[in-house]
Design a protein around this nucleic acid. Structure first.
Lengths: 224, 224
DNA sequence: TGTACATCAGTGAACGCGCGTTCACTGATGTAC
DNA sequence: TGTACATCAGTGAACGCGCGTTCACTGATGTAC
């Protein structure tokens, strides 16, 4: 009977000086839609407004335009992403095992937040606005943490000597490839996902490992 | 002066019985736009019609709807993709080297055809129409060829024993990850791309290699 | 304690746009007689 | 050899849609006097 009922509760107007409350509600709703649909194009200003229980122009009270809104959400996710990875990597004092933990956390983040993951790592370069230089910075931060971890492996003699940037890029390619395939090709007959994740990480780390006997402090596998 | 001039030559109407000619021109134009923009959403029926020098309804003389058109183009690319990889892999009789060649060809295809690559391997599952079961078949064919190649490595004792599906999925993840990052993050300060491709492939293959001494016919690296 | 007023959160209606798709049509081409 | 006609390739105009964004506005809230 009721025409065009908003999907959320009616939402009462904020009190004087409390206008910022709406901003958070908008961010939350956008994030929710982004996770649900996994596609920036599917998240419209109108859909967000409807989800919050407000009219479209209200969005512009808090965000200059659509991309500012989208990237505000992504920024939050990027921060969380880096934080999760650092936290996971801190779970071991062995740098190689840290990489393993970091890799697992990476893939898990992607699987659990396919919407933001798509935008952060799979969207077209042109879709990223100019002012989003933060992206570069954040990415660098997140990537820099990986490089540090790799450097620690090299310093410990656990990895064969090599260019840490090259090694880091390779690891990134590996986990990103797995993550994005799992997100995109859900119908593919994947073997056990957790097993696959660990297998891919093991192959990569094994491929980077120092030759036996050459390492200064290498853990090596058995005497022979 | 002329209003709304079509971007292509005026194109003269086909003769009786030659209507199919337009079909090919449409496919070509779609492919061209897809490669240029790299985004399915950016390729509109109207843009294709304009590129061909024809009005939008003409498209429907040859394709039931937009997705049929898009996937007709992708199907062509998928065939070419598999063909290129098989051709590349045939460049060596050593199965491990075949994998290397296959991997290089994979990444090169992605870099050279980012539009089709995005649609084939990076688009949302929901964006793929139901009738596109071919996709699964083709994908299986292409993937099956990889599995065969991996099995040959196992049979030759060049790889440590393992599940060929798991190994194949890992290799796919590696090359896909590299390809999609190179496509998506063009602004990232990548090290030398060709070097990076080879490095990633080497790391993966090294990680899969049989332990020295365990292999029956392994090539091994030097005596010690 | 009461009232005028500035402020602020949010609305309602509309804009112009490009999209996929439909439908009745046109006019050149070939064929039957 | 000439003409009526069916066929076929393509057109022109319009449909309804959802989109981002703008603009003049409303009405509740707090504050100054």
């Amino acid at each position: 009977m009721s025409a065009a009922a908003p999907s959320a509760r009616p939402r009462s107007r904020a009190r004087r000086g409390q206008g910022e409350l709406l901003r958070d509600e908008i961010l939350e709703a956008t994030e929710r839609l982004l996770v649900e649909t996994g596609d920036e194009a599917a998240v419209s200003i109108r859909a967000v407004a409807d989800a919050v229980g407000v009219t479209p122009p209200s969005i512009y009270l808090h965000f200059a335009d659509k991309s500012e809104l989208i990237f505000a959400v992504c920024e939050k996710h990027f921060e969380e992403f880096d934080r999760l990875l650092q936290e996971a990597a801190g779970g071991s004092s062995d740098p190689v095992e840290s990489l393993m933990l970091r890799g697992r956390a990476y893939v898990r983040f992607g699987i659990e937040h396919p919407g933001p993951y798509r935008i952060l790592f799979m969207s077209k370069p042109a879709a990223i606005p100019d002012w989003w230089t933060t992206e570069r910075l954040m990415e660098s931060a997140s990537f820099a943490h990986l490089v540090e971890n790799v450097q620690a492996c090299l310093d410990a003699g656990a990895f064969a000597p090599g260019n840490p940037l090259m090694i880091s890029a390779s690891l990134w390619a590996g986990v990103h490839g797995l993550t994005s395939l799992l997100i995109t090709k859900q119908a593919f007959p994947w073997p056990d996902v957790d097993g696959l994740i660990d297998y891919v990480l093991h192959v990569l780390l094994r491929g980077l490992r120092a030759e036996e006997g050459t390492a200064s402090t290498g853990e090596g596998s058995a005497a022979r």
